[in-house]
């Protein structure tokens, strides 16, 4: 036994007992944490107070504390919310509609797929996949360079594919399993949106849906689908199989089991995933930049456009950004407990 004597220096650097930290460590830990707290909060604070400043107060140099350094004014809020009125409201409503619908569709479709990949064994013949890709490539080629109309080429390709599967499909042995399908779905996230945005733009232009809510909702759903599948899969895998089998014997169909047993039990995961998708859809910039020009313009577009039209009018900009952050922050505070857990499960199982 050799218990060191508690000198002053040791007392500073050794913990008092196993549950606490040494005083010196404690000071260091709190200093660093508070420092980052300031790094996070100060920009937001500055944004917030700027929204209450008059142009002259902004231009004169920094004022930090309302009522002491400067007299807060509501003029920017008044201008954005009332004088501009509809010009602000329309993108705001667009954003709400698009983000909300995209989140609902994305989480629903993604959960379907994730659940199926957990519970149902798939065997997709490699030969059929190759045939499908070849026909797709051929269709693209004939439509784009030979000028064949899409409405003629697509059915021909589909019929050819069906014939191919019916005639030759059974001779293929090698097949892709659930893990391969999962990998394909998740790997879609690696695809930078800028690669696909041109054809998507042309596609929507062709069918006259450019600059509509539907176009944005559909694209956002597709782009975020891999995340939903990836996150929800582990929540579903964690549900005991017994529960589903029991329901099956009690007479429930697959769809019924999914909606009455599986989804309610995966509620924490649903909350976390939905919040994440909501944030991503709400803040999305690049796709909106291409696909929405006027009618379907979303909030990020409106905020970004401030610069171009009027130069840096910080006070107005701050108001816009504050009203854009507010709903997300509110939702997140309600759900914040779930999101860490949700992300963790996905990350651990990877």
């Amino acid at each position: 036994m050799n218990i060191p004597e508690r000198t002053l220096l040791r007392r500073l650097f050794l913990p008092y007992d196993i549950t606490s930290m040494a005083p010196a460590t404690k000071v260091l830990v709190y200093t660093l944490l508070v420092l980052w707290l300031l790094v996070v909060l100060f920009p937001l604070y500055w944004l917030f107070i700027t929204s209450f400043k008059l142009p002259i107060q902004v231009n004169d140099g920094p004022d930090f504390i309302p009522f002491i350094d400067f007299e807060p004014s509501m003029h920017a809020w008044h201008y954005i919310l009332f004088e501009l009125g509809n010009d602000t409201l329309r993108p705001y409503i667009n954003s709400v509609i698009v983000a909300f619908c995209a989140t609902v569709f994305c989480v629903l479709i993604g959960s379907f797929a994730a659940y199926a990949l957990v519970r149902i064994q798939y065997r997709v013949k490699i030969g059929n996949v190759l045939a499908f890709l070849a026909l797709l490539g051929l269709t693209v080629f004939t439509v784009t360079s030979l000028g064949a109309p899409l409405f003629a080429a697509a059915p021909v390709a589909i019929i050819l594919f069906v014939f191919f599967v019916a005639a030759v499909g059974r001779y293929f042995r090698r097949a892709l399993g659930n893990d391969d399908i999962l990998f394909w779905i998740i790997s879609n996230r690696i695809l930078p949106p800028v690669v696909v945005v041109l054809p998507v733009y042309l596609m929507f232009q062709r069918i006259g849906l450019l600059d509509t809510h539907i176009a944005l909702i559909a694209t956002y759903t597709a782009v975020n689908l891999p995340i939903v599948v990836w996150l929800m899969r582990d929540f579903f895998a964690g549900i005991p199989l017994d529960l589903e089998e029991s329901a099956q014997i009690d007479g429930a169909s697959r769809l019924r089991i999914f909606f009455t047993i599986v989804l309610p039990l995966a509620r924490p995961g649903l909350a976390a995933t939905s919040l994440l998708i909501l944030i991503l859809a709400w803040n999305e910039y690049l796709l909106a930049l291409f696909i929405s020009t006027a009618d379907a313009q979303t909030m990020p577009m409106l905020v970004a456009a401030q610069n171009a039209t009027r130069g840096p009018q910080w006070w107005y900009m701050s108001v816009l950004i504050v009203i854009m952050i507010a709903p997300i922050v509110l939702t997140a505070f309600l759900l914040q407990r779930h999101i860490a857990r949700g992300l963790l499960v996905g990350a651990i199982k990877g």
Binding site: P240, D242, L243, E245, S246, A247, Q248, I249, D250, G251, A252, S253, I261, L265
Partner: peptide
């Protein structure tokens, strides 16, 4: 579901 059997699981499988 069409067999109309009832099953009790080891884990009870309560919802």
């Amino acid at each position: 579901k069409y067999r109309n059997v009832a099953m009790v699981f080891q884990s009870y499988a309560l919802y």
